[in-house]
């Protein structure tokens, strides 16, 4: 459990730093390409963004994933009773 929490924290931090410092995402480049191909296209639906920086939510996702992964791996390594 301790290890899972430590890995979760590490993954969260890594995701936060990467999200802040990594370059333009391919998803955004694809949007630019759509704009270049069809300038008139307007997205026809959007959902309101969550408050706070994107990097924070990436960190939450990575921490959740890393924590669950480590917890499950530790349990798998233990001999089943």
């Amino acid at each position: 459990m301790r290890r899972a929490i430590a890995v979760a924290a590490g993954c969260g931090l890594l995701a936060y730093v990467l999200s802040v410092f990594a370059g333009t995402g391919t998803d955004e480049q694809a949007i630019d390409t759509v704009a270049a191909l069809r300038a008139s296209y307007q997205p026809w639906y959007s959902i309101p963004a969550m408050p706070g920086p994107e990097a924070f939510w990436f960190a939450i996702q990575a921490a959740l994933g890393g924590g669950v992964l480590t917890f499950a791996l530790d349990r798998l390594r233990r001999k089943p009773s």
Partner: peptide
């Protein structure tokens, strides 16, 4: 759980790549 955790953790990472993209 491990598979789902791996998927969640990896897709939350944004790796820098060639020519300033990620």
């Amino acid at each position: 759980a491990a598979s789902a955790g791996f998927l969640f953790a990896l897709t939350a990472l944004k790796f820098p790549s060639v020519a300033g993209s990620s």
